[in-house]
Design a protein around this nucleic acid. Structure first.
Lengths: 236, 236
DNA sequence: GGAGCTATGTATAAGAT
DNA sequence: TATCTTATACATAGCTC
C-alpha cells in the first residue's frame, strides 16, 4: 500500500480511471468552492467525465451566468449587438420552450375535461362548455403574457408589473460541503457560507421546473445598464 | 511559521487575500489540467479574481467550446433553433467585428496613399488614381467575401453560393499561444499530453489576431450534423 | 461503483527575501 | 507583488469491504 509519485499521463486501467476521476473531480470542486469563499470570487467549473457525463460547479448562481460574465467582458469587442441579440433569443427560446410545454400540459388537462360532443343537446350546454374552454384558453394566454412579461419587461425596470418579485437573491445560502455523498443529493452546510453555490451532476438532474428563468436572465438582471441598443457594455 | 488549519471563510486581509488567490488559482488550474490528462476529459474553468480579473482554463481548445458543449447538451431542450441562431449570430458578429477592423485598417492604409487631389491635372492621372483606389476596394471586397465565405459556406457546402467557393476550410487555424507568464511556464504538464491545453489570463491577452474564428466555430465544425434547420440536435 | 482506510505525495500558510 | 522556504495540513493512490 505504497502511494507512488504521480505521473501525469492518461490512466489506462478503466476502473482506476473512473475512481481517480471521481476523487479528483470532488477534490477540484472542493478547491473551487474554497477559493470562492476564501477570496470572495466567482468560480465556474465544467467537467466532462471519461464517459461523457457532465459535472458543473458554480460558486454563485448558475454556471450559465459565469459563462455570460465571461462572454460579456467589457473588453470583449465581439459583444455588442450580437450579444444582446443572443441573450434575447436565448431567453425567448427558453420561454418558448417552457410555454410549449405548459400549453401541452394544459391542453392535456383540457382534453381530460373534454365533453362528449354527442351529449351536448342544447344551446345552453354548448355555451357552458364553450365558456369553460374559452376560460381555459384565456388562462393559458394570461400565463403566457405573464411569463413573457416577466422575462422581457425587465428591460424597462420601472414599468414592470410582475407577479412576484422575489427578494431571494440576498438570502444566506450555506456553502456546499462536498464530502458527504454524491453531489446533488445533499447540499449540506458550511457554517459561514455567504453565497449560493450550485453544483450539478447532470445525469441526476433531469427535471426542470417550469416558469423560472433557466439561463442568463438572473445574470442580465444584475447588469444594470443592459439594454437593447448596441451601446456601451460595461461592468465592474 | 506554523501552518494553521484552514478555516473556510473570506480572507479579510487584502494582501493575503491576493496571495492566497494566486496560489490557489494556480493550484486549481494545475489540478484541472492533471485531471484532464489523467482521465482524458474536457475541463473548463473560469475564475474571477477579487479585483475582477478573469482567468480561464480549458483543457482542450478554447473555453468557449466548453461552454458550447455545455449549452449544446443533447438533453438540453432549450437548444434547438435558438441555439443555432445564436451560434450563427455570434459567429457572424465576430466576423463582422473583424471585418470592420480590417476595413478600418485598410482604409487607413489607403488614406496614407491618398493623392493630393490638387496634383491631379489630367484625366489620365485621375484614371490611374481611380484605378488604384478601386483595386484597393476590390481587394477589400475580396477579403470580405473570403472571410465570410470561409465561415458561412460550411453550413451547406454543396448548395451555397457565397462570393467565392473556396476550399480553404482545411486551413490550419493556429491554436492560441499564450505568453509564457506565471502559469504558462508550468505548462510542462503536456510533456506527454495528448491535447491542447489553453490557459488565458485575460489582462495579459489584449491582442487578437485577425482572421481566425475566435469562438464556437471550431466547435461547430466538429458537430457534423449541425445545420440550420430546427432539427435533431444530437451528439455522443 | 461507492465508502473507508492509511501511508505518502502535494499544496499551501506563514514568513522571509 | 512575485518568489523561495519550511512545516504542516490536505489530497489521494492503492487497497479492502
Amino acid at each position: 500500500m505504497v502511494r507512488k509519485k504521480l505521473i501525469v499521463k492518461k490512466i489506462e486501467n478503466p476502473s482506476s480511471l473512473q475512481v481517480t476521476y471521481c476523487k479528483r473531480r470532488d477534490g477540484i470542486i472542493k478547491k473551487a468552492s474554497e477559493l470562492a469563499v476564501l477570496c470572495d470570487t466567482d468560480v465556474g467549473l465544467v467537467m466532462f467525465s471519461p464517459t461523457g457525463r457532465l459535472t458543473s460547479f458554480a460558486s454563485n448562481g448558475r454556471i450559465e451566468d459565469v459563462f455570460l460574465r465571461y462572454i460579456d467582458r467589457p473588453n470583449e469587442l465581439r459583444g455588442g449587438c450580437v450579444l444582446k441579440m443572443f441573450l434575447i433569443l436565448f431567453t425567448l427560446g427558453e420561454e418558448l420552450h417552457d410555454l410549449n410545454q405548459l400549453e401541452a400540459e394544459m391542453q392535456q388537462k383540457m382534453r381530460s375535461y373534454n365533453p362528449d360532443i354527442e351529449k351536448i343537446t342544447s344551446i345552453y350546454d354548448a355555451l357552458v362548455h364553450q365558456k369553460f374552454l374559452t376560460n381555459a384558453i384565456q388562462r393559458i394566454e394570461e400565463m403566457k403574457a405573464k411569463l413573457l412579461g416577466k422575462q422581457i419587461v425587465p428591460l424597462e425596470p420601472d414599468s414592470i408589473e410582475v407577479g412576484k418579485e422575489k427578494e431571494s437573491q440576498s438570502s444566506e445560502v450555506p456553502v456546499l460541503d462536498i464530502k458527504d455523498s454524491n453531489f446533488m443529493a445533499e447540499k449540506s452546510v458550511d457554517s459561514n457560507g455567504r453565497r449560493n453555490p450550485v453544483m450539478e451532476d447532470h445525469h441526476l438532474q433531469r427535471t426542470r421546473s417550469l416558469g423560472g428563468p433557466h439561463l442568463s436572465f438572473d445574470y442580465l438582471k444584475t447588469q444594470s445598464n443592459w439594454n437593447l441598443q448596441c451601446g456601451s457594455t460595461s461592468q465592474g
